[in-house]
């Protein structure tokens, strides 16, 4: 058995392994995460297109964004999209489902929760395809067929109610995140609290309001903050379902606008510079919000000192 002294000596040698542990991840993150953050900012100061020239125009792109009358509309769209999806689904429905599924038979409850996971793990193109089929304008498409029984006329949902479809599509995916977190939080409430309340004659609704909701205040705040940022920068499903339409920028959000300018130009005249300037704004929002999480949710507490080194 080695003595304490030899262990201390060996520790110096062990430090050598640190590089082995860290270098692969650090390299990847530096080149494909940190460097792109800087590059996004730099490209945003140029008018780069497919000639790939670094032609510095400094803040012109940003001045243009300020005078772009559609940028204002798109920003409003983005707020509307984030707010609605978040309120009705990512937080609202997530909370309702986790409360409902924890108050019924455990097996049934987890079956429902499992079903709600399905949209999230379904590949986005397949999931979007399902909605596109369901929302079609023909009378035999799913939505029109169901509403037909209640006497509604068939309509093309994507054209007549684009926001409804966009929010539903995103919401049915987004709900599961909050659902998982809330469920975990609800389950961690000690049985005694609830039993005690029941003995005191509290109804289920009273238990939910006075015991459960106050106890999941922090998870609620966390999900809200976290999902706000995710929604702010997400556009994949919108791209697949309405592609920003119908009409002029009807459902175009900021991130999609950036994508469209940089990668989806009919004439092949792309705007890497302008698109990067738009993205830079999102990057800055992203960095600020991530730092806020860090402070607000005391992630620093997770950074406890490693015990093994304390020899």
């Amino acid at each position: 058995m080695a003595t304490l002294t030899t262990l201390r000596i060996r520790r110096k040698v062990f430090k050598g392994y640190l590089a082995v542990f860290l270098i692969p991840s650090l390299t990847f993150i530096a080149v494909f995460f940190l460097l792109p953050v800087i590059l996004t900012f730099l490209i945003g100061l140029t008018d780069m297109d497919y000639s790939f020239k670094w032609n510095w125009i400094w803040l012109d792109n940003y001045i243009k964004i300020l005078s772009d009358r559609w940028a204002y509309k798109i920003m409003m769209n983005t707020f509307f999209y984030v707010f609605s999806t978040l309120t009705f689904f990512n937080v609202g429905l997530a909370l309702l489902i986790s409360i409902a599924t924890t108050h019924v038979n455990e097996l049934v409850g987890s079956a429902f929760r499992a079903l709600w996971l399905l949209p999230r793990i379904t590949p986005s193109t397949v999931y979007a395809l399902l909605w596109l089929w369901a929302a079609r304008g023909e009378e035999y498409s799913l939505f029109n067929w169901i509403l037909g029984f209640f006497g509604f006329k068939p309509i093309d949902w994507r054209l007549t109610h684009p926001w409804l479809i966009v929010i539903l599509v995103n919401g049915f995916v987004g709900t599961s995140f909050g659902m998982i977190i809330f469920t975990a939080a609800l389950k961690s409430i000690p049985e005694d609290y609830i039993r005690a309340a029941k003995v005191d004659g509290a109804s289920t609704l009273q238990i939910i309001r006075h015991i459960e909701l106050p106890l999941i205040k922090w998870p609620l705040l966390f999900v809200t903050a976290y999902q706000t940022l995710s929604l702010f920068t997400s556009y994949e499903y919108i791209l697949l379902v309405t592609n920003g339409g119908p009409g002029l920028y009807t459902t175009e959000v900021w991130a999609l606008y950036s994508y469209h300018l940089a990668f989806a130009q009919y004439g092949g005249i792309v705007k890497f510079g302008y698109g990067a300037a738009l993205a830079t704004i999102l990057v800055i929002i992203g960095i600020i919000m991530s730092i806020i999480y860090l402070k607000m949710f005391r992630f620093s507490e997770l950074m406890t000192e490693p015990k093994i080194e304390v020899v």
């Binding site: 995460f33 590059l39 950036s258 991530s290 080194e309």
Partner: peptide, 29 residues
Amino acid sequence: RYRFRGRSKLLTLTIILHAFPGITLLIAL
């Protein structure tokens, strides 16, 4: 398991990046 200089900075960075939406970096990537 390791204690080394910059550990807490690295952890902070990892958390920030974890929350950070990589999709915004498409052009630079």
